[in-house]
Nucleic acid binder design. Structure first.
Length: 285
DNA sequence: CTAGGATCCTGTCAGC
DNA sequence: TGCTGACAGGATCCTA
């Protein structure tokens, strides 16, 4: 369920592994690791990048590890001897953020002399995939990625809406080939920001509405990045309780039955193209 | 080409 | 207490 802000938060958190040498790789679930262990073993991490929801970890031997978290992926870094202290975790928010590693959801482990990175994934939809660094742009998912909202002009987004005028606007912004990084939460939040009904045909949006929606996608994800996405940093609250990051962040997502902060109407939950969709029928037209 | 639905997998929760 | 079905912050493949 991690979206762009979660992946960006992981990217930033992984600064701690730059120039560390991977001295051991353990693949606990075969389908979670596409490549050969030898392509990673005894290499140093030179750079961590992000493209949409894909994390790219460059190694000093010409290979790049692409990590896609899909629905339930997590990246957890632990320093040896220090346990949860001095650690870092991002992705799908669960108790694994703070529990003993490896857990039953751990699929791949990368060990350093002083710690380890755990790739966890409850549902096994995510993966770690090895790609030659110079061929990253040719990888199928990366290749078809659209621009991130803040890299796109309003006119360009409006053209996409016109080109795919038959689809509903929510599915359109969820398609990574149109806009990179938006997932189910930020789609609902951006549509709320722009006061647009998620079921609207893409072709029915005015230029003004297109611009507002583009602005909304950028804003909600930017704010989330500033808050650290859903990561360990905001998972455990000061009093030890488990905080739901969405409680503080979301205006509509998971708020069905509650009052709309903008107009006082009731937030509803419906299905749009098979995805749970939250919106305020009173102010999203 | 588009749009919509099924599918991969595990876990949790509501309802009976 | 089971059991069952629905659903889950994603993307791809298949069908019409």
């Amino acid at each position: 369920m991690p979206e762009l802000p979660e992946v960006e938060t992981i990217k930033r958190g992984l600064d701690v592994v730059l120039s560390k040498k991977i001295i051991q790789v353990k693949v606990l679930e075969k389908k979670s690791f596409i490549g050969e262990i030898e392509q990673v073993l005894n290499t140093k991490i030179t750079q961590v990048r992000r493209r949409g929801k894909a994390l790219l970890i460059d190694l000093d031997n010409g290979w790049t590890m692409m990590i896609h978290l899909r629905m339930t992926g997590q990246v957890i870094f632990r320093l040896k001897e220090r346990g949860v202290e001095g650690s870092f975790a991002g992705g799908h928010p669960t108790e694994d953020f703070v529990s003993k590693m490896p857990s039953r959801h751990t699929r791949v482990i990368f060990e350093f002399s002083d710690g380890a990175v755990y790739f966890n994934d409850q549902r096994k939809f995510g993966f770690v995939k090895l790609i030659p660094t110079e061929k990253v742009e040719e990888e199928s998912f990366i290749k078809r990625l659209g621009r991130e909202p803040w890299e796109m002009r309003g006119e360009e987004f409006y053209e996409i809406l016109q080109r795919k005028k038959g689809s509903n606007v929510k599915s359109l912004i969820l398609d990574q080939g149109n806009v990179a990084g938006v997932g189910n939460i930020y789609a609902d939040e951006a549509l709320f920001f722009a006061e647009i009904d998620p079921r609207r045909r893409a072709g029915s949006l005015s230029k003004k509405e297109a611009e507002r929606l583009l602005e909304g996608m950028g804003k909600v994800m930017q704010v989330s990045i500033e808050l650290g996405g859903s990561s360990m940093a905001n998972y455990v609250k000061a009093d030890g309780s488990r905080g739901d990051y969405l409680e503080a962040f979301a205006k509509v997502f998971n708020r069905q039955g509650r009052r709309c902060e903008r107009c006082g109407g009731e937030v509803k939950k419906i299905k749009v193209s098979g995805r749970g969709t939250h919106y305020c029928p009173r102010c999203q037209k």
